[in-house]
């Protein structure tokens, strides 16, 4: 670890004591069938807790979060068989005007129930306040400009969140189709500073990095050289495709070659990396197929074992 990245020494020691897991998969309904048939196909499972319940919103008088029985039955089955980590989509940590204590409490409750080894969410925002003062959702994850003002705000929100969740907290680098001019920092500088100021770890999504590098014409390897890889606890890998001249992070199936090359690059240089998660969207499963999923997992496992041992 280079001296420039001294910030990662401040990372929680309990988190660094977690054992390295290997290769996991992000849960969807197609994954459920595959895992039931072969629980040993992955070393761990990542789940989006938000998909396991219907959220009736902050205005709901009671039973705001109604859990989906068939999904929680699967989770009950899985927790006894494999380590599970949580990857939420609702914290909207980049929002300048948003807080949802009940949602955080629901996540904390699920941590107590399922013992997630770590928790991650995204470096972006989705929730704003409309002109009339009501909640407004962006309909997608919107990226942030890498400015000091944004850094202070997000770091403050993560510092406030961390004591409420009983596990290490990871922030995922965003995919962005826009470029903001005149930013205070580069993305790796922003992420390194966020780690220092908030005590979070990084979920490094290599397909997001590849997508940004390809669309905006920068060198992903240079990004990795400038990122504090000691803060990376989880890596995401995925596939994507072109929409009207832009390469998008659609999670449509096999990882492209540059993502595998980035994984080869990161694995030997990320000493605190605990797991590599393959993500795909289940709407592509009919085309991608079980064989496609197994092939990606096998390739990720062989890269993992080459660098980390079996």
């Amino acid at each position: 670890m280079s001296g420039a990245f001294a910030g990662s020494r401040a990372l929680g020691s309990h988190a660094l004591g977690l054992r390295a897991l290997g290769v996991g998969i992000l849960y969807n309904e197609a994954v459920s069938t595959l895992l039931k048939a072969e629980p040993g196909m992955v070393d761990f499972l990542s789940i989006m807790p938000d998909l396991f319940w219907t959220d009736h919103g902050t205005g709901a008088e009671k039973n705001r979060f109604v859990e989906l029985d068939s999904w929680t039955e699967f989770l009950d089955w899985a927790v006894g068989r494999m380590p599970v980590v949580a990857h939420s989509i609702g914290l909207s940590l980049g929002s300048a005007a948003f807080d949802d204590d009940d949602y955080v409490e629901q996540l904390a409750d699920w941590h107590r129930r399922y013992g997630f080894l770590w928790h991650s969410d995204h470096l972006s925002f989705a929730q704003v306040r409309s002109a009339s003062g009501h909640e407004q959702h962006a309909g997608m994850a919107v990226p942030l400009p890498y400015d000091f003002e944004v850094l202070d705000m997000v770091a403050g929100r993560i510092r406030a969140l961390r004591p409420k969740l009983p596990s290490p907290f990871l922030i995922e680098n965003a995919v962005t189709y826009l470029r903001f001019a005149d930013e205070d920092m580069s993305e790796p500088e922003f992420l390194n500073a966020l780690v220092r100021q908030s005590g979070c770890f990084i979920l490094l999504d290599l397909h997001n990095l590849h997508t940004n590098a390809r669309n905006h014409g920068f060198d992903a390897l240079d990004f990795l050289r400038r990122l504090d890889l000691a803060a990376v606890m989880e890596v995401h890998i995925a596939g994507g495709g072109e929409i009207a001249g832009m390469y998008t992070d659609s999670h449509s199936g096999a990882c492209p070659e540059p993502v595998w090359a980035l994984l080869e690059e990161v694995l030997p240089r990320a000493p605190n990396l605990k797991g590599v998660t393959f993500e795909f969207h289940d709407s592509y499963f009919p085309v991608f197929g079980a064989a496609g999923v197994h092939a990606e997992l096998a390739r990720a496992k062989s890269i993992w074992s080459r660098h980390r041992g079996p």
């Binding site: 919103g57 009501h134 407004q136 959702h137």
Partner: peptide, 10 residues
């Protein structure tokens, strides 16, 4: 209607 809560099912 403003898309308020991001809950696609609702």
């Amino acid at each position: 209607r403003v898309f308020g809560d991001g809950q696609f099912l609702s």
